[in-house]
């Protein structure tokens, strides 16, 4: 990283604006994810509409960031750390957008739910949701502080997300096994669980982009995988 400022002040401002947009996008995504988890657990159908509508704000920010990045590329031909900031910001913004989409997908599953969630399924789903939210918060903090160590920790912690996903999926499968009447609710919950797990994958992508931004090298080695989880 460099603590020196650019000779050209407007270049400095452009990178700062890019950083500000990403942080704004990050916090918006964080609250969308939190709201969707809260709403699914409470089967709060009113909040669902608000969450679905709010996703457009995240998409707008992504479009804004795309534009800001094209301007920087064409005006500045960024090099070294500036190039890595620009490219990593582009990648991170796209991962945030996908997390936003997944939060929206979770919200979309709330309305068709036939009734409240059975108590035995809430525990694992909440634990998974809490962990993924914590991962997102941590990766955004790590981005703010440009912390390589945090990026590595977050990257490794996805294994826990995979394990919790596995547990939650198994519980839903058991619930389904009890009665055919559970089919509709169980199907929705399987999608919800999978969506949360995929949000976790995008968070590890962000951790990888952040590591590359800081170090100029890719995180090496295979990420530890949770048990029995098929990635797609």
């Amino acid at each position: 990283m460099s603590d020196e400022a650019h000779i050209v002040k407007s270049y400095e401002e452009e990178l700062q604006n890019l950083n500000d947009s990403l942080i704004k996008m990050g916090s918006l995504t964080e609250s969308q994810l939190a709201d969707s988890m809260e709403a699914i657990i409470k089967v709060d159908k009113e909040s669902a509409d608000k969450i679905i509508a709010n996703d457009a704000k995240i998409n707008e920010l992504r479009a804004k960031i795309d534009n800001q990045i094209m301007t920087v590329l064409v005006k500045r031909a960024p090099m070294a750390i500036d190039l890595r900031i620009t490219i990593s910001t582009l990648k991170i913004s796209h991962d945030l957008e996908r997390i936003g989409d997944l939060a929206k997908s979770v919200a979309k599953k709330i309305k068709p739910l036939p009734h409240d969630l059975p108590k035995e399924l809430i525990g694992s789903l909440r634990r998974l949701g809490d962990l993924v939210q914590k991962q997102l918060r941590n990766v955004l903090d790590a981005y703010l502080n440009k912390s390589k160590e945090s990026a590595i920790t977050i990257w490794k912690n996805d294994e826990q997300v995979d394990d919790l996903t596995n547990t939650a999926m198994n519980e839903v499968a058991d619930f389904l096994g009890k009665s055919k009447k559970n089919l509709e609710l169980a199907t929705h919950l399987l999608f919800v669980t999978k969506n949360i797990e995929r949000a976790g994958d995008h968070i590890t992508n962000i951790a990888e982009s952040l590591y590359y931004l800081i170090e100029g090298e890719y995180l090496e080695g295979a990420r530890p995988k949770g048990k029995d989880i098929e990635k797609n």
Binding site: I7, A80, G216
Partner: peptide, 20 residues
């Protein structure tokens, strides 16, 4: 290497327009 991730801070500051 020089233009993506130089080893030396002075190189980076020069190629990114931080001093000249």
């Amino acid at each position: 290497k020089i233009f993506k991730n130089p080893n030396n801070k002075m190189t980076q500051d020069y190629i990114t327009g931080r001093f000249g």
